[in-house]
Each structure stands twice: as structure tokens, then as C-alpha cells.
Amino acid sequence: MIFGLEFPPIQNLVEWPNWFGPEGSWYGFNKIAFINVIALVATTSLFFIAGRSKSLVPKGAKNLVESAVDFIRDGIVLETMGPEGIKYLPYLVSLFFFILITNIFEVIPFFHMPGNARMAGPAVLALLTWAYYIAVGIKHQGPKYFINAIAPAGVPKALLPLVIPIEFLSTFIVRPFSLAVRLFANMLAGHILLVTFSVLCITLFTASLLAIVLPLSFAMLVGLTGFEIMVAFLQAYIFTILAAVYIGSSMHAEH
């Protein structure tokens, strides 16, 4: 309570009651789950519409989907993994679209909640990516993958006691943790930022004298909404490109 500004408790901002299923049960379906399902349906229908038309000239949804796939293939896969990474394209495209659409609900009216401002989504995606790049490493290098990963070739023997724990931590612990936390914290921060300015606008609207600064606050809110759209896109891109880098680094022993 500062100058009549009543900030809601954070639980009210990010936690949503179940629509069905008892609270705390493993299948309780709430707003976040609904956003995830919308992401699935939206991506599926976009790709379905795009894949249905057989004309070689893209337009509408097809144009959007094709430019996105082209962007992921040329800008992410080929840049970080090279041509042999093309077979991981489906995973990366799914990641990109899922994260982008769940993020973009941050600014969609009547939702105003990024699906990834809850730790669950990012944690699941990061764990899946973690399992995926370990699986790719084992597939490409066999059990030697773990040795190659924690003890890079060319490191002097004397440094190994120092290098092995650091590499183990950074490869198998910090990577998934930072992947999840990066996405989650960015979206949560953006969400709290938008909520802060919305609350400020509402408070100023009812304030008598301070209402003269309302336009500034509102302009800030509008600007931040645009900024958050950019952040939603950027976080999807960064998550995808980091997944690509991790998968690519598992394909060959580091040197």
C-alpha cells in the first residue's frame, strides 16, 4: 500500500483455479493448461491449412508457416548444426511454435497470462530438451558421450579434477536449469511489469490530482505491450536456438 497503490499478491497474478479436477490433483485443468491446448490447436490448424493447399505460390497462413519454418531451418538449424541437423527440425519447430504461442497470450485480451510464466511449461520443455540431447549424444557417440562431455579432449591431465566437475555441472545441471529459468523468469517479469503498469493506470484513473500523469502511464503500458510481444518472440527464438546448440554439441565430441 503505497500512495493508495494496492498491488495484488503474486499468487493472484500467476495461479489459477482448476476448471475441473480437484485442486492439487495431477490432472487438474486450469487456464495454463487451456493456453497450452490452444497452442496445440492453433499450431496444428495453421500447419494443416498451410499443408492443404498444393499451390507452389504461398499466401496467407501458408506464407506465415513457410517463412517460420524457413527461418528455423536457415537461421537456427543450419547456423548451429549444419545440414545434418535437418532431422531435428520437427522438434525445434514444435518448440518454437509452442513457446511462441503460449508466450503471446501475455498480451492477448481476456487471457493476459503467458503460459510460460508458470514454471511447469518451461520445466517440461527443458527436461525434454535435456533428455533429447543426451539421447542424441548416446546415439551418435555411444557411452563415450558422457566421457567426451565432461572431459573435453585436449585438456591437460592436471586440470581434469577441476574441469570434470565444472563440465558436469554446466552440461547436465546448469543447462536445463538455465533453459527453464530463462524462459520462465522472462515471461514472469514481463507479466509482472504489465500488471504493475495496469494497476498503476487503474489507481491513477480513480485518483483526483495524480490523474494528470495517467497518459504517461498508459503510454508506457502500450509501449511495454509492444516490447513484450518482442520478448515473447525473442524467448521462443532463444529457447529454440539453445536447444539446437545443445543437440548440435551432442552430435560430435567437443574439440
Partner: peptide, 21 residues
């Protein structure tokens, strides 16, 4: 993370991945 949101996220994403592939 809460267990129900993780469950739904995992189900939805795995479904999306399979469909995508």
C-alpha cells in the same frame, strides 16, 4: 512447478511434437 500444469504441458507438447513429426 505444479504437477497438473506439468502434466498438461507434457501431454500437449508431446502430442504437438508427434503431430509435427
Amino acid at each position: 512447478p505444479t504437477i497438473n500444469e506439468m502434466f498438461w504441458a507434457a501431454v500437449v507438447f508431446l502430442l504437438l511434437w508427434a503431430l509435427m513429426k
